Computed example of a mutant assay.
Amino acid sequence: MRRIVLVVLLAAAGPWAQAVDTDPSERVAADPDVIAARAARERGDWKEAVLRLQRAERRYPGDADVQNSLGHALRQTRDFDGAFRHYGKALQIDPRHRGAHEYIGEAYLQVDDLASAERHLAALRGICMLPCEEMQDLDKAIADYRAKKR
């Protein structure tokens, strides 16, 4: 009897019960446009990656990873205004997003704004209690930038 009641309750809950079982980050990662953007990125087709991530953004505007990935793809096409806009959205959604801090810092170096890059490195130092990959990558990018400017 209890099994029948449980089955009836789950059937009545319908899609809502399924939505509870799925982690939002899993839904985003399984999104066909996100998957296609990842494949486009791997083959260096940044325009396709941008197109696919823009589609995904319409479905997941509040996802910091989508915003960060879109910022990165736009930066690769040299659309710095768009890149900064999407990195900014990622950091509004998640101020501790390590990838967004790293990528926006690297973008600032590309437009010769060392001070802003250093601010994001400082943010990463505050976020990463132990050295994290994003902090190390941005630190190296800043060191390389300084050596090149000498």
Rank of each mutant, 00 (worst) to 15 (best):
R52L: 03
V66S: 02
H97N: 13
A117T: 04
V5D: 11
V66P: 01
R38L: 09
P24I: 08
H86S: 08
A115Q: 15
G88R: 07
F80N: 00
K149Q: 14
T77R: 03
V50M: 02
L109A: 04
F84V: 02
A147I: 05
D81T: 09
R85E: 10
R96E: 15
D21K: 15
L138G: 01
V28I: 06
Y145M: 08
S69I: 01
K149N: 13
A73D: 00
A141W: 07
E118W: 03
A64S: 10
T77I: 06
S116V: 08
D139Q: 15
R146K: 15
A12E: 03
G14A: 15
R55V: 14
N68F: 09
S69H: 05
A123M: 12
N68M: 09
E48M: 06
S116M: 14
T22K: 12
A122E: 12
R75I: 00
R58P: 02
F80M: 03
D79C: 05
Q18S: 15
P61W: 01
L51C: 05
W46T: 06
D94R: 13
I4Y: 09
R146D: 07
D94S: 11
S25Y: 11
R119M: 11
D21G: 12
Y103V: 01
L51A: 14
R3E: 15
V34S: 03
C128S: 06
R125C: 04
Q18L: 15
R59I: 10
A115R: 13
L6A: 14
A30L: 07
E133T: 14
G105C: 06
Y108C: 01
K140R: 13
Q110P: 00
L114N: 02
I93T: 11
C128M: 06
I93C: 08
A143W: 08
K47T: 14
V34W: 03
R59T: 14
D112E: 15
D139A: 13
A115T: 12
G99R: 12
P61C: 04
